[in-house]
């Protein structure tokens, strides 16, 4: 405990580092996954390819991916950018299926009604499909947020500073309190982002109680059905 009190500054800095590493991938992954998921849902041919590809991407272990990315992108091995790219890839891999499932869950009758009252394809997507798929997307995004925060710690072994640095440092110096503090902070950060998403969901999707409608997508993500 004394270690923690005397190192509050360090803990705070690492928490901030961790936020900087893990928030962009969550947002980027979502933004990229939406059009891909839409394609997968809209075109039968695209569906198999996109979902298989995202399943395979998701199957790639994180640590090796951190090593492979510099060779592809040309970044240096120690660059935090590698981590951001890798985490974004996982975010996309998880979300694409969720987006496709969410869009597919929109009732055909609803879609046809929208066509009947004169919506164009573009506005059906923005004003009908996307909001109705909202709860499913939110559920998927929550899973992505939690797993991204947790995965980001792995980068510490190749030198990307984050809450994970507390693990490597604590391990090398034999300070249990440091590792425990790191675990607690990582979980707390994950819960914080999760809570923020729930609040965001309440604001953006006021017509629904987000937590209840999203079981299917949550479960799918939990079971790793992404790769199914």
């Amino acid at each position: 405990m004394t270690w923690i009190w005397s190192n509050l500054d360090l803990l705070w800095d690492r928490t901030l580092d961790h936020l900087v590493l893990s928030v962009p991938p969550i947002i980027l992954g979502f933004l990229i996954a939406v059009p891909l998921g839409w394609l997968a849902n809209r075109y039968r041919a695209g569906r198999g390819v996109i979902l298989t590809a995202s399943g395979l991407l998701y199957a790639i272990p994180s640590l090796p991916l951190f090593f492979v990315i510099p060779a592809i992108v040309g970044t240096s091995l120690r660059s935090p950018l590698n981590l951001v790219i890798a985490l974004t890839i996982y975010g996309i891999a998880l979300m694409v299926r969720v987006v496709a499932d969410g869009l597919a869950s929109v009732d055909t009758d609803v879609r046809q009604s929208a066509v009947a009252v004169g919506y164009s394809g573009w506005s059906i997507f923005w004003q009908v499909e996307l909001p109705l798929a909202g709860p499913v997307l939110l559920a998927g995004l929550r899973v992505v947020a939690v797993s991204t925060v947790s995965l980001a710690t792995v980068g510490a072994v190749i030198g990307a500073q984050s809450l994970g640095s507390l693990f490597t440092d604590g391990f090398q110096r034999g300070i249990q309190a440091e590792i425990i503090a790191g675990i607690v902070l990582t979980v707390a950060l994950a819960l914080l982002l999760d809570g923020a998403l729930v609040v965001l969901g309440r604001l953006l999707l006021p017509w629904t109680r987000p937590a209840t409608t999203s079981r299917r997508a949550l479960r799918a993500a939990q079971l790793g059905e992404v790769s199914a």
């Binding site: 939690v146 947790s150 710690t153 072994v157 994970g164 693990f167 604590g170 391990f171 939990q222």
Partner: peptide, 20 residues
């Protein structure tokens, strides 16, 4: 329990148990 475990960082658990 599964949700909570998912949030626990693997590396943290690994290094902690290794210290123990």
């Amino acid at each position: 329990a599964s949700g909570g475990l998912r949030a626990i960082p693997t590396l943290g658990l690994l290094t902690l148990v290794a210290l123990w």
